[in-house]
Nucleic acid binder design. Structure first.
Lengths: 223, 223
DNA sequence: ACCTGAACACCGTTCAAGT
DNA sequence: ACCTGAACACCGTTCAAGT
């Protein structure tokens, strides 16, 4: 067994320079260590031994900062994968969603502040290549990638819970109760399909959704 | 011409009672008048002539409050509509998205705090009925409604801009520039499809997306 | 039992004033 | 020119103390 070395919570890997890249680097460190709620202008400034006003020289606002952090994280998405184009496409999308699921709050930001950085562009390029390989007409593919990524982002964003994981279960229970407590007179289908509506593991549903989206994109010509 | 009656900004339609419904009513009034950013515990308390702590007797937290407000707004969704099932289905979904687009910040909340109120249940029931009418197998319909609503919610949430509509245009420009500035060597498809990626009005794209989703849902059996 | 004042622990952003 | 102290205008949530 390795000897445990007590590390002070305050110990940090050398203070980065006060530049845009330095700020993003600190932001990611804080994100990994303490989550998105701590990635604030004030906290980052403190980490860099300055006042919050100084950050505004390099970053326009919090939203822009979050977008920059997200693009950096997108470097972790696995763009390779094995199998046919369909399987590889699903693989990339699953990897994308999984990366976002590590920080659902960031996915939430991504919905508003679309990234347009290096890693994002590479991801879109890869998705277009796979759709092309699958014989999906270019125009459909172009509109399709947007929806594919939006689905992944939204799915991750749905898990953004404000600190308290307990509430997530509460909410599901609330829906379950609402669904089973509904009158068969006024809501016959809701009643009949209550179990189907809640069925399946997150993985199964996500896999079905990706297949469904790929089928829809392949089979729906743009106007 | 009608005579203009100067109305004090402070004038209000009779202070509601300090109950859950009263709080939600005030929340909606503030939402309509000043937007979601003003729908805060503190502001609502002030509106009800009390301290913020008092609201916590009736509402668990801000997220729950937002969910309640959203369900109320969902009462405005047009569930009727004319034409075949496909057209009516698209109509309801478009209406849903449009209602959310009035308050994109609320759509953003909705992604996390799924409503489970009366109006939400009626909406889901209606969508299930339309899919059934279209001959979509029940299991596919059950998983499908989720994605249909998620798409509408996410689309509305994408428009959630923090106060400054100027930024939205900036962002689109950033993506346009990024897309056209990319090297054809490393990103050939991005370069070739740059125009397609940005093509179409929001309405056209939304219409295509709904058709695409309906096609995908109809044609993809659940495992 | 029901309600709430006051406090705790924070935010983002701006701008006048420094170096 | 570049940087920042201090201020402005807020937040959500808790809890001890009141009625």
């Amino acid at each position: 067994m390795r000897s445990r070395v007590p590390v002070s919570r305050r110990e940090r890997p050398a203070k980065p320079a006060l530049t845009r890249d330095g700020i993003v680097a600190v932001a990611i460190a804080v994100l990994r260590a303490e989550g998105l709620t701590k990635v604030t202008m004030r906290r980052l400034a403190q980490e860099l031994d300055t006042g919050p006003a100084s950050l505004y020289v390099y970053v326009a606002n919090t939203a822009e900062l979050h977008a920059a952090v997200l693009d950096e994280l997108l470097g972790d998405v696995d763009l390779r994968g094995a199998g046919g184009w369909r399987q590889r496409l699903t693989g990339v999308l699953t990897s994308y969603t999984r990366v976002l699921l590590e920080y659902p709050g960031l996915a939430r930001s991504a919905l508003t502040a679309r990234p347009s950085g290096e890693h994002y562009l590479r991801l879109v390029e890869t998705l277009l290549a796979l759709l092309d390989e699958g014989g999906v007409p270019a125009a459909q593919a172009a509109w399709g990638v947007d929806v594919l990524l939006q689905f992944g982002t939204a799915t991750a964003a749905e898990h953004a819970t404000r600190e308290r994981p307990a509430h997530a279960a509460d909410e599901r229970d609330a829906l379950t109760r609402a669904l089973h407590g509904v009158s068969p007179e006024t809501h016959p289908r809701l009643r009949a399909l209550a179990d189907s509506l809640l069925a399946g593991s997150p993985e199964e549903r996500m896999a079905w959704c990706f297949q469904m989206l790929i089928n829809g994109i392949s089979g729906t010509p743009v106007p």
